[in-house]
Design a protein around this nucleic acid. Structure first.
Lengths: 113, 113
DNA sequence: ACGGATATATCTGCAACGGATATATTGGAA
DNA sequence: TTCCAATATATCCGTTGCAGATATATCCGT
């Protein structure tokens, strides 16, 4: 059998694509295309990356497919409790990295909302 | 000839390994082993990733090797102005992602300094 | 009815990473 | 003073992950 990986830390660090996808799912289930659109606010992402990554996230148990829509043609995904813990752990890691950058004088120019 | 890539955005997003290395160099030049130790505060990193990534960063012009130490056996690296702009841009991108996560209720538990 | 946006699927080449392996030197402990 | 761990760099290779292209079908507005 393959390795367990039930601890969030076993999945860190997340690639930018994985982080953007989990983040897009953080406030509720979405279908693939909607995920891609929201993820593109953070990184560029084509369908190859999207669906390939989703398959890996499904296999890793970080997201599940939810078949509860009458709307055929769309496949909805939801983040699992483990997925949420992974996202939380990665967010904390990134926050630490950003803080470290600030301490080292890396000061991004304020950007409009 | 190969593509220019003089704009910071052309290098984003950075992989976690690249970000950790550039961050380690943000407060002054360091040699490879020192970079690896500091980067390990953020991500796990073996020598293969370290030196392979350094070679790519050299080729991309984000870091340069500085040969000004009498200390043989050590190779020192410094981040270039472009490298610093890339690091700044990525820090801003990450800050936006972390903020988005917070807006979605992802609240990492406070961790001791 | 047409075209553009929506929506998913899949394939393939390449870059990046991880882990192992190798080698040499330095410094401290026994 | 010998030995071992840590320092320091180098390189190879299998696996993973991503980018971009291609394909197909549907929906909606004009």
């Amino acid at each position: 059998m393959s390795t367990a990986r039930t601890s969030p830390e076993d999945h860190l660090p997340l690639t930018p694509a994985v982080f953007a996808i989990l983040l897009a799912l953080a406030d509720g289930e979405k279908h693939g295309y909607a995920i891609m659109q929201e993820a593109r606010e953070h990184v560029s992402m084509g369908p190859g990356t999207l669906y390939g990554t989703l398959d890996r996230l499904l296999a890793a148990g970080l997201v599940v497919e939810t078949r509860l829509s009458e709307d055929e043609r769309r496949r909805y995904y939801r983040v699992t409790p483990l997925g949420k813990r992974v996202l939380t752990a990665e967010t904390a890691r990134l926050q630490r990295s950003v803080s470290m950058a600030h301490e080292k004088g890396i000061r991004p120019i304020e950007v409009k909302a």
